[in-house]
Design a protein around this nucleic acid. Structure first.
Lengths: 191, 191
DNA sequence: CATCCTATTGACTGACCAGTCAATTTACGT
DNA sequence: ACGTAAATTGACTGGTCAGTCAATAGGATG
């Protein structure tokens, strides 16, 4: 009788992600989430104390997944430039392959109502990036600028690049856009 | 007896702007908007058919104001570079001087529920930018890249720069950040 | 003053929705 | 089989909120 598959909790999270990106946090009633996930209303509130708790959990999960994907393989690279370029490719690739998660994160980041703690925890995943930049500056590979400025500008430039690359129609075109976009960013920061 | 001052309609729009940036679209009941604006509930719906209509109107108004501020004086500049740099300064200055409007626009841009028509109308104010970029490419001042990519990346880089500059504590520091940030952008696009 | 149109009011309504809870089922250890 | 705790159910509730409407006021015009 019992579905063997993954937890209902996971089903709820996955369904919520889709619905939130389609209809926004407030446009998505919890009743719809549970219905689409194939569980009862009560079950949702068994796993998550409140709706906000659900959103928070989802955000932490997605953000740490994104951070993990971005870091993949950068320890193998030696120069700061190579590390940053690898990181850029990772970030853009992840963003394009996970449009829903990307949209969710952006929506969340610009919502004024969300818990500051989740915001800060989210940021913390990317602090290594600031160190990386500082390292690059010390070694003379990167221009001498306020690291926080570079951090902000990189983050937003990535988001613009992902948005732009997602519009591409063919795979070739997309690769070209990504390369050009990463070039744009690197030209901006190199010494 | 009659308040001589500006329309109630304007009071509603101004109040809505503040409340939306503080509490989000959905976290702000229309009843609160009318109360804070000093008008009755009915008055709000006399001027705006629905809540969405109010948000839409506000968006169009803010966006066109932003576009106007950005363009100020660019016709006086001759080269594409000078035009773009003037535009950059204008954009950042406006964003810093109007944090509420800035926040509102970003929130709106990332909300999945809003009318596509407003989105498109908003974009249309900035199409001249694409032409400007294309012109710069033709004259060899700007690298040969997909204009849409440049457009997206400039827009997001501006937003990152404004966010970063808003964090500055002293005016001097802010000027430095803005100059560095605009440099970053220009280095990324110049031929 | 009578007529008409626009602006304004706020009590009210119908719908919706987050979260509760008592009852039921499942899983598992003994 | 039995007991127990965790998981699951869905009807229900209390509150909230977008939008309505009948009533009123003000100003303009003749």
């Amino acid at each position: 009788m019992r579905e063997p598959g993954p937890d209902k909790q996971e089903a709820i999270l996955a369904t919520a992600l889709t619905l939130f990106t389609e209809r926004g946090f407030f446009g998505t009633p919890t009743s719809l989430i549970s219905k689409e996930a194939g569980v009862a209303t009560g079950t949702l509130f068994f796993y998550f104390k409140t709706k906000e708790d659900l959103i928070d959990t989802l955000y932490r999960q997605v953000k740490s997944e994104a951070a993990l994907a971005m870091c993949r393989g950068i320890e193998k690279e030696k120069t700061a430039q190579a590390k940053l370029q690898r990181l850029g490719h990772n970030a853009v690739a992840w963003g394009i392959q996970n449009p829903a998660k990307m949209k969710f994160m952006e929506q969340f980041a610009h919502s004024p109502f969300v818990s500051t703690s989740a915001h800060e925890e989210g940021m913390s995943h990317f602090l290594f990036l600031k160190d990386l930049v500082q390292d690059g500056i010390k070694k003379g590979e990167i221009r001498t600028v306020e690291p926080m400025l570079l951090f902000c500008m990189m983050a937003s430039a990535f988001s613009g690049l992902i948005a732009s690359a997602s519009l591409a129609e063919t795979a070739d075109e997309r690769v070209k856009i990504i390369d050009e976009g990463l070039d744009f960013i690197w030209n901006g920061m190199k010494a």
